[in-house]
Amino acid sequence: MTSRLQSSLIPKFLALSIGGFLLLPMLLVVVMSFGEGTSLRFPPRAFTIDSYIVYFTSAGWMVPTLNSFIIAGASAAITLLVTTPAAFAFALFDFPGKRLVRLLIMMPLMVPFIVMALAYFFFFGQLRLLNTMVGVVIAHACLAVPIVFLIQSANLKSFDWTLVRASQACGAGHFRTFRYICLPLLRPSFLVAGLFAFITSFDETVIALFISGRAASTLPRRMFESVRQESDPVVAVVSTLLFAVVAAVAIVIAWRREAGRSRSATRDLERE
């Protein structure tokens, strides 16, 4: 018994310390965001919320934030619209060249961002789309294609296609089957795919750095510049806000999963 306890103690201790290594820097940023003065001093000399006020009131930060939301929203919408039919094609049909098409769709996941940054820098330069939002939206929409494709494919794989037949047997044609059965059932997973595309764009730094320019600067680009050039404590604010959103979402999901588990357990009891 003792040996078993010991044997599980070592990995547990290791895992916890490494978990601390992962978590600590993020917590540090939270502390920094309330710090005063130059951003790279830790611990900060004093604590204020000045940096938060600066972030929310300066156009230099608000405009890139807004840009990022617009670009991420637009590119997610485009990716979803372009990629979803393809996921249906893969789920429903066998066709010659399926493997090749799949490889093509996955391409954006295989090419290093820096290579694409150079490629788009040149390409959009020729099309006069450099330093425009349109350019960034297009680039980000391309990057999200494989991600949305993978998520949608997984969704469609787990979709119960006999429901479609059942609906037809009830007398619904193609349109009404899609409207009343497929769409309501697939809507949540469409949203998830869209969310992933949104985050992909919102988080993307390298390509945005080189092609968005000052005119269409995204939030990551603004952060990058601010980290590299000045010692701007607002970076810590933005980082904290981003971290807070992620943490909130992660905790809500974990909590709901727990709740869902106990709910389905009571349901099982009721059935009997």
């Binding site: 037949r165 037809q168 047997a169 009830c170 007398g171 619904a172 044609g173």
Partner: peptide, 9 residues
Amino acid sequence: PAHRRNFGM
């Protein structure tokens, strides 16, 4: 087509 046959399934 299936949906116009009025067959239950």
